[in-house]
């Protein structure tokens, strides 16, 4: 029963509960008009203590497309937080007005404070580099819709595998499905941390390989998940510049990939995917943004217990 649930971490929901959300998302994708009034009269509060236009738009579009309405703020200095109000007090107040709250905050664990204080469901839309569960939901829905299954896939993940929490959550989430194999492509300096390699992959006996070069492994992949190397993770400019251009996916490289491989990326990209890939039908990253909205629509309906 997802009604009334918070979503704070990617693994908060079981495989079955995730399945319920994906089933509903598929129904919405097939017939969006049918759901245009599913959340009539409901109110979503979007509490963004740091700006993230992409994520906020995705949630707001999801709510509006279901017939619901939205209130909120998009940065901390336009909110009561600027006047020194605690997260608990803000959420307790917002819970008096809204039916569900989405919260983004630079501090790790902030949405949990909010969820404890508010008696309405709280969704974590990113808390620092900690968790971003609706990104994981988006990634899984994209794979399911594009590939037809979350099982028996060879998934290549390329770029910054050390700091990218999105990637760690994706590995953890996909590890719950059968027959998934990972090919981890990164520079030596940006390999997956021990808690992923030992704590998830080895512990659950998930087959994986770690490689430095992208092109040689491309032919075996069903999915290529590209990530950007984030500048703010580096102490010196030199290291960043050296590592950021290490993997650039372009049309020439795509010739080595399977005809039905899909390319994913959480966006925004910098230069790790060349624009000449955009017109390739295998480029799924903009469709991924659309699946993100559908995933959030299904999530909102489920936790608000809307009529299907």
């Amino acid at each position: 029963m997802l009604k009334g649930s918070d979503l704070l971490e990617p693994m908060d929901f079981s495989v079955e509960e995730m399945g319920e959300i994906f089933d509903l998302a598929a129904k919405i994708i097939a017939n969006p008009r049918k759901y245009a009034h599913a959340l009539d009269g409901r109110l979503l509060a979007t509490l963004f203590y740091e700006p993230s236009t992409r994520t906020r738009f995705s949630f707001e579009a999801a709510m509006l497309r279901l017939g619901g309405q939205v209130i909120g703020f998009s940065e901390a200095n336009s909110s009561s937080a600027a006047k020194g109000e605690s997260i608990s007090d803000t959420l307790r107040t917002v819970a008096c007005y809204a039916d569900v709250a989405v919260m983004r905050h630079p501090k790790e664990g902030a949405p949990r404070i909010g969820a404890i204080a508010a008696d309405i469901p709280v969704i974590n839309a990113g808390d620092g580099g900690h968790h971003h569960p609706t990104q994981t939901l988006t990634d899984l829905l994209t794979i399911l819709e594009e590939k037809g299954s979350l099982e028996n896939l060879t998934v290549g993940i390329c770029g910054d595998l050390k700091f990218g929490r999105t990637v760690h959550s994706l590995i953890k989430a996909l590890s719950r499905y059968g027959g998934v194999k990972f090919v981890l492509i990164s520079p030596e300096e940006l390999v997956v941390p021990d808690y992923v390699r030992d704590g998830i992959l080895i512990k659950n006996r998930i087959p994986f390989e770690e490689v430095r070069k992208l092109t040689p492994v491309l032919p075996q992949l069903d999915i290529l998940y590209m990530t950007r190397v984030q500048k703010e993770r580096f102490f010196n400019e030199e290291d960043y510049v050296r590592l950021k251009d290490r993997y650039i996916l372009d049309a020439a490289k795509m010739k080595h990939a399977k005809p039905d491989m899909i390319v994913m990326h959480p966006l925004p990209r910098v230069n790790e995917i060349s624009v000449d890939v955009d017109s390739d039908p295998r480029a799924a990253y903009f469709r991924q943004a659309k699946y993100g909205m559908y995933a959030r629509m299904a999530l909102l309906m489920k936790i608000l217990g809307a009529e299907e």
Partner: peptide
Amino acid sequence: KNPRCVTSIEPNA
């Protein structure tokens, strides 16, 4: 002790 933890800014948590 994590400076990025919400407990560093939420006084009564």
